[in-house]
């Protein structure tokens, strides 16, 4: 006789805490076969608003850490994920209907993705920055700095954990804080990852995860004046041009949708996309 299991209540992750949606709404998450799996929180625009506040207040702390430190924090996520990989494999199999080997492969890739990006944190500035030989007595450097608060529509298809990590990790590397709209259909990996993040060294508010309807919530983020950038990587099925138009109001940096298994593929460009190049001129005088 099998033991009666205890199902988990899947909640949002905002400012390091796990609130239910302020709206009280939930939506059904089903298995690949259509069976009921869970009631995930269905975030409202007010949850999105709260997430922006949390993300904004976390910017100066997170951006202010050294690259070395950020790298270790991101690597720590990989460590924790490795220890809990079985849970993620099981969820991916149930939600995405993936085979065990495919689910294992996805989780492994996701862990390796964290490691890959973690290593960039104290290097990308050397690659994308520059020392500028100006014609005059000036010391002139260009360095990349985080753009600030980035709203991300995570890839919506299968490969939900890998897609999520692939979109979130590069934004974090540079010191941005993020609000992520998880895959609407496959949200469990994201929610479980929030539990990993909560017990990792990532400060509260650096990653904020909303489940629910990206179509409903993204417009609020796209038009939010305190969001600096918008990653539409998983927004291909939304009216994403309208989102980009809304983002133009405050000149947000926008990355367009990507489809297929290569969506949010690992790249330095994804890190650089949410950085701002700051050029500093110093006078050089001996006398």
């Amino acid at each position: 006789m099998s033991r009666l299991t205890i199902p988990k209540t899947y909640k949002l992750y905002i400012g390091g805490k796990f609130p239910r949606s302020e709206s009280g709404r939930v939506y059904e998450v089903a298995t690949r076969g259509g069976d009921f799996l869970a009631n995930a929180a269905k975030a409202s625009r007010k949850d999105a608003r709260d997430a922006v506040v949390a993300a904004r207040s976390a910017v100066s702390g997170w951006a202010g850490t050294s690259g070395y430190n950020r790298g270790q924090v991101l690597y720590r996520i990989a460590e924790l994920l490795e220890g809990r990989s079985a849970q993620f494999v099981a969820e991916i199999m149930r939600v995405e209907g993936a085979s065990e080997s495919a689910a294992v492969a996805q989780v492994d890739k996701a862990i390796d993705r964290w490691v890959w990006y973690a290593g960039w944190s104290d290097k990308y500035a050397q690659v994308t920055g520059s020392s500028n030989p100006v014609a005059g007595p000036y010391f002139n450097l260009s360095v990349p700095e985080p753009t600030g608060v980035v709203a991300i529509v995570a890839p919506q298809g299968e490969g939900s954990l890998l897609g999520f990590v692939g979109a979130v990790a590069p934004a974090l590397v540079a010191g941005n804080t993020v609000i992520v709209l998880a895959s609407e259909r496959y949200p469990l990996s994201a929610i479980s990852l929030s539990e990993v993040l909560a017990t990792s060294d990532v400060p509260g508010g650096v990653v904020n995860i909303l489940t629910g309807s990206p179509a409903e919530i993204t417009p609020w983020l796209a038009s939010h004046a305190d969001v600096n950038a918008l990653d539409l990587v998983g927004a291909g099925a939304l009216e994403w041009v309208d989102l980009q138009i809304a983002a133009a109001e405050t000149l947000k940096r926008v990355l367009p949708p990507e489809e297929g298994p290569d969506a949010a593929a690992p790249s330095l460009d994804r890190i650089a996309a949410f950085t701002e190049t700051k050029t500093v001129w110093h006078t050089k005088g001996l006398l």
């Binding site: 005059g136 007595p137 000036y138 006078t283 050089k284 005088g285």
Partner: peptide
């Protein structure tokens, strides 16, 4: 106050 050589020149 100090003098910034570049600015002075």
């Amino acid at each position: 106050p100090g003098v910034d050589a570049v600015g002075l020149e």
